[in-house]
Write a protein that binds this DNA or RNA. Structure first.
Lengths: 242, 242
DNA sequence: GCAAAAGTGTTTTGCGTACACCCATGC
DNA sequence: GCATGGGTGTACGCAAAACACTTTTGC
């Protein structure tokens, strides 16, 4: 029948020019937190049309990997980190989104602790850019960044993921500053503390900050009981399971 | 440099066998509501390995269209409807997800009013399958369906989208039954009514149901003031703008 | 002693939830 | 008249929000 399910006819028709064989890429919106600002890791574009503009870190998908593996690979290559938080957000497929030809890209965001890989940055044309400043990125990367930022804002309201942006030990002030940076709001300190203790996301390390020029605050770490929630949620939406 | 941004080198290296040129498809999870059940539109798989199994409606992406256009095309071809609610959910890229070769697929869900296109169904191997019954779909379509169902459940909590599943005029009983079907829960009638009036999502048509064998309820329609919210949200996450 | 941030409780408000009775219609 | 669902209001509990003063440390 004329409108039959063409995927079922893949093998005989894979060479059919009606069907697109496209390059596929991943673009990683790598978030970090420093100087009380949410930052995103950018690289100088090599492409002539985008000369001197910044772009997200991405790469083309290879034959032997899926999108998630490709994202992990990009992250590993760029930040040296292998155990990062990664979440798929959206796939962008406009015909004209890449000046070099048809490339469909899937956007991931990831959360890293900037301090963990500061060394790798210097020899590259890499740069931590404040998310709240206008950036005029190459390609459609402004839009990708916005979409990922939106998703991040939604996710942190329900899920304990911001800890990936902080060092293992952190103060409540740092945690609150991080939320305020991501959501671009001010929050009440007492309510913030109350809420986090109530949610049981924090473990009191019974240590104090050092190197602050004021009264030092207590240090906490993330309560890894809640890792299982993350894992459960991940498994449910991940492509590897079920 | 060894780890330069390969997307920037697309033109010279597009033929590089390190980079995959993949078939790309869309799969549409088309939700409908009938007999107090949430249903999904399925088609008999033509593929030999999946003989007699049902699959989602999908198609390969064509050279001149983006993913959203492809989804609209599939919907138009299958249901005859051109003005449907459509939302991208997730892109699946496992190496072995399609027995005929490497196909990356982006899942969309859509919400349609079953009554609007009932005629088109009879001559096809199409079938409205209850979502809550085990289905053993072809490919990874069980997983795609689950992922879309989860996203739908999240979305209806915040956004007035379920109206796309109902006729223009509907009773509160139908609306509540729909929520109960999607969320697989029972709700309190008085609280349900209160909440919807408070949210201002409904317009009282000052008409009554007919053809019910009990006291007829009032009919309502969706308050299209809130369409702007939807449009605003869409524009913000859509690839066509910005 | 002064600047800067830590730490701490109470009150109010709005929202979700639980819950029961009479009413209108079809049969 | 009976079965079926329509329509309605109140009370409780919880969580979010508003709000100010004392304490500790570095300088």
């Amino acid at each position: 029948m004329a409108t039959s399910h063409r995927l079922d006819m893949l093998s005989p028709s894979a060479q059919n020019p009606n069907f697109l064989k496209a390059l596929v890429s991943v673009d990683c919106v790598i978030f970090g937190f420093a100087d009380n600002e949410l930052k995103v890791l950018l690289i100088k574009s090599d492409l002539e049309v985008y000369k001197n503009r910044w772009s997200l870190l991405g790469d083309l998908l290879r034959p032997n990997e899926d999108l998630e593996s490709a994202s992990y690979r990009v992250l590993k290559e760029r930040t040296g980190l292998s155990d990062v938080y990664l979440e798929q957000v959206y796939t962008f497929s406009s015909l004209d989104r890449h000046p070099g030809g048809r490339v469909i890209t899937t956007a991931y965001y990831s959360l890293v602790n900037i301090k963990d890989h500061q060394l790798k940055l210097s020899h590259n044309e890499l740069h931590w850019h404040p998310v709240n400043e206008l950036s005029n990125l190459a390609f459609d990367h402004d839009k990708i960044l916005q979409t990922c930022l939106e998703r991040l804002r939604e996710q942190i309201q329900e899920h304990p993921i911001v800890f990936n942006l902080l060092p293992e030990k952190f103060s409540l002030r740092e945690l609150q500053a991080l939320y305020e940076a991501i959501l671009n709001t001010k929050m009440d300190r007492r309510n913030f503390r109350k809420k986090f203790f109530l949610m049981d996301w924090l473990i009191d390390l019974e240590e104090l900050e050092t190197d602050v020029s004021h009264r030092p605050g207590k240090l906490y770490r993330f309560n890894s009981i809640h890792l299982k929630d993350l894992k459960a949620a991940e498994i449910f939406s991940s492509e590897e399971e079920l």
